Amino acid sequence: MPDKDAGTPRVFLYRHGQTEWSKSGRYTGVSELELTEDGVQQVLASGKMIVGSGKLIDPSNIAHVYISPRRRATQTFDIAFNDADKQSLKDAEKVSETDRLSEWNYGQYEGLLTREIRALRKEHGLDTERPWDIWRDGCESGESPEEVTDRIDNLIQEIRSIHRGNMHSENPCDIILVAHGHLLRAFTKRWLGYPMEFPLSLMLEPGAVGVLSYQHHSIDEPALLVGYGFPLQE
């Protein structure tokens, strides 16, 4: 039986590789950190497996690559794609950096661990009835869930304008997002129409790739691909 959703446009969520702070669990928003050596190897491994002609992320099928302006994200794109594919995409004006993919602005919580954030908020007289939850409470002097929602929704609207009218692969329509752990999980919630505080537990390892798409070739049925079949490699 043929796959009823074959050829539907996809959005690939490419998380940057490991940094020293992601390794230790410290919240990393605006700070500029390089990938660790393990982080470089994570991206090299995923890129070698799924990026390239005839692979899951085939440059010939890409409509646009959106990249967070943070160094760890741009470094990930540089490693995952070979030089020829990067140049071809750039020459076709299919690559851009956008603040809409910047990691959540953690404000006073930048560089802290979750337990340190909760202790700080307790000192500030917050969370007397329940523990801090970034999806509901946001960050002091940083972004609220509503602010993150607004910039993600703006990008989703732009992506859907590319996908609309191309739901059966009429034109190359895959979108690549190279960004961050919290931001890409937030993007997934909004793609599916859930508010930030909706209790949808999502995991995305450093250097890993998630996939979003649509059901029934319908722009009105955004979906999360929880499993994906890989192309046969020659």
Rank of each mutant, 00 (worst) to 15 (best):
V11W: 09
W21Y: 13
G17A: 06
L126F: 14
W132R: 07
L202N: 13
G207T: 01
Q41P: 00
I67W: 04
L120Y: 12
P195E: 07
D150K: 13
E93Y: 03
H124F: 14
R164H: 11
K48T: 06
V65C: 15
H216V: 00
T76E: 02
R151T: 05
D5G: 04
V40W: 08
G125L: 09
G125S: 07
S22C: 11
G227V: 06
I219C: 12
D133E: 13
W104D: 00
L225T: 09
M196D: 01
L212C: 12
H124M: 15
T114I: 12
T28C: 15
Q42Y: 03
Y109N: 07
D3P: 01
V30I: 13
L33I: 07
G52Y: 01
E158Y: 03
N82E: 07
R70E: 13
Y214P: 03
L232P: 00
L56H: 01
L33D: 12
H16P: 09
R136V: 10
E140S: 04
E170Q: 14
T76S: 13
Q157D: 09
S201R: 13
R164G: 01
T36N: 11
E158Q: 14
W132V: 08
D174R: 03
E34W: 11
G39W: 12
V51N: 02
G227D: 07
L200A: 06
I57P: 09
E146K: 11
T76G: 01
Y66I: 06
G111L: 09
F230C: 00
L184E: 05
A84R: 15
G229H: 10
L183H: 03
D78Y: 09
G111F: 12
V148Y: 05
T8D: 00
G17T: 08
S144R: 11
P206E: 02
D150N: 04
W132G: 03
S68L: 04
S31Q: 14
E103N: 10
E20P: 03
A119Q: 10
L212D: 08
I219A: 11
S68C: 04
E20F: 11
L89I: 10
E110K: 10
T128G: 15
T188F: 02
T149H: 00
A73C: 15
M1Y: 07
L224H: 13
V209Q: 05
P199W: 11
W132T: 08
R118F: 02
E37N: 09
L101K: 05
A119H: 06
E93T: 00
G52L: 04
A73G: 07
E103R: 08
L177H: 07
A45D: 12
G47I: 05
L183R: 01
S141V: 00
T76K: 04
D58G: 03
E170P: 05
G181R: 02
R136M: 07
